[in-house]
Amino acid sequence: MSYSACNSIIVQSDAELSAAEAHGLATGLLCINDQADSAYWLAELLQDSDSVNDENQYMLVRLFEETRRLLGSDEFEFDLFLPEDDISLVEQAEALKSWCRGFLFGIGSGASGAKWPKEARDILKDIAEFTKLDANAEGEEDEQAFMEITEYLRSAVLLLRDELGNHSRDNDDIDDDFID
């Protein structure tokens, strides 16, 4: 599914999110609980919107389930769901900020007040900082920075999935000093 097709579905439903933020939300939920239900995600995603027809709902559920599959893959296939490369860097940067907001919301929605390892907390702080990026990006230097941030996020998400998804099953490695 293309980003623009998914974004159109979400915009048509009057959801106050973009496809990037919706994907971030799904990713955050799945990092906390790889068994998360797509119905919960859809309810969060479309809570204040008009109903979505069955075909579009099916497409959104496919996005959620594909995200689950990619997160669980041993092939490092997961990637952020952002606008295509032919879209302006400004729009891509805005989508990246939205993805980060959605991810943090998904993590928060799926978390139950647990203490997490320091490395996980540091990554979450980085992601929170990315929500404040200056989206007025242009030029080769900004493009390079954008690519580095997306690659960092891609790797960080997979690390967080391992760390946060396992925290409830194995609390032996958790730093008791939750707040630095």
Results as ranks from 00 to 15, higher is better:
residue 88 S to V: 07
residue 120 A to T: 05
residue 91 E to I: 12
residue 111 A to D: 00
residue 121 R to W: 03
residue 91 E to F: 11
residue 102 G to T: 08
residue 84 E to F: 03
residue 118 K to G: 08
residue 127 I to G: 07
residue 86 D to Y: 08
residue 76 F to Y: 12
residue 108 G to A: 02
residue 117 P to F: 13
residue 118 K to L: 06
residue 122 D to C: 00
residue 107 I to M: 09
residue 122 D to F: 01
residue 117 P to M: 15
residue 107 I to F: 03
residue 104 L to N: 02
residue 115 K to C: 07
residue 114 A to I: 15
residue 114 A to N: 12
residue 85 D to Q: 14
residue 99 W to Q: 03
residue 74 D to V: 11
residue 115 K to Q: 13
residue 79 D to M: 07
residue 111 A to Q: 05
residue 106 G to K: 00
residue 96 L to V: 12
residue 91 E to T: 12
residue 97 K to M: 12
residue 122 D to Y: 04
residue 106 G to R: 02
residue 75 E to K: 10
residue 88 S to P: 03
residue 127 I to C: 11
residue 109 S to H: 12
residue 80 L to D: 04
residue 94 E to P: 07
residue 115 K to H: 14
residue 125 K to Q: 10
residue 119 E to S: 13
residue 117 P to A: 13
residue 85 D to T: 00
residue 99 W to C: 04
residue 80 L to M: 10
residue 104 L to K: 06
residue 82 L to T: 13
residue 125 K to D: 13
residue 75 E to Y: 04
residue 83 P to G: 03
residue 84 E to W: 10
residue 85 D to H: 09
residue 126 D to H: 09
residue 91 E to V: 14
residue 89 L to A: 05
residue 83 P to M: 05
residue 102 G to C: 10
residue 93 A to K: 06
residue 121 R to L: 05
residue 101 R to D: 07
residue 79 D to R: 11
residue 108 G to W: 02
residue 75 E to R: 08
residue 103 F to W: 12
residue 121 R to H: 05
residue 125 K to E: 05
residue 114 A to Q: 14
residue 94 E to L: 07
residue 88 S to N: 09
residue 106 G to Y: 00
residue 89 L to M: 03
residue 74 D to N: 14
residue 121 R to N: 13
residue 115 K to A: 13
residue 93 A to C: 14
residue 73 S to I: 10
residue 121 R to Y: 03
residue 79 D to Q: 08
residue 102 G to A: 08
residue 74 D to I: 08
residue 87 I to L: 13
residue 87 I to A: 11
residue 77 E to P: 00
residue 123 I to S: 04
residue 104 L to A: 04
residue 107 I to R: 06
residue 88 S to Q: 07
residue 84 E to K: 02
residue 113 G to F: 04
residue 100 C to R: 02
residue 123 I to P: 07
residue 90 V to W: 01
residue 104 L to S: 05
residue 94 E to R: 11
residue 108 G to S: 12
residue 88 S to T: 10
residue 120 A to F: 06
residue 80 L to H: 02
residue 114 A to T: 09
residue 75 E to T: 05
residue 77 E to C: 09
residue 117 P to Q: 15
residue 124 L to W: 07
residue 104 L to Q: 10
residue 116 W to C: 04
residue 73 S to D: 15
residue 102 G to I: 10
residue 124 L to E: 06
residue 92 Q to T: 13
residue 92 Q to R: 15
residue 111 A to G: 02
residue 117 P to R: 15
residue 90 V to Q: 00
residue 77 E to S: 08
residue 105 F to H: 13
residue 83 P to W: 04
residue 119 E to D: 15
residue 127 I to V: 15
residue 99 W to M: 11
residue 86 D to P: 04
residue 96 L to E: 01
residue 103 F to M: 12
residue 105 F to L: 15
residue 119 E to L: 12
residue 77 E to D: 14
residue 107 I to L: 01
residue 121 R to K: 05
residue 102 G to K: 10
residue 100 C to Y: 06
residue 118 K to W: 01
residue 91 E to H: 14
residue 91 E to M: 15
residue 85 D to R: 08
residue 113 G to P: 02
residue 77 E to F: 01
residue 112 S to C: 07
residue 105 F to S: 14
residue 80 L to N: 08
residue 85 D to K: 08
residue 84 E to G: 01
residue 79 D to A: 07
residue 96 L to T: 04
residue 120 A to Q: 03
residue 108 G to M: 00
residue 109 S to V: 11
residue 117 P to S: 15
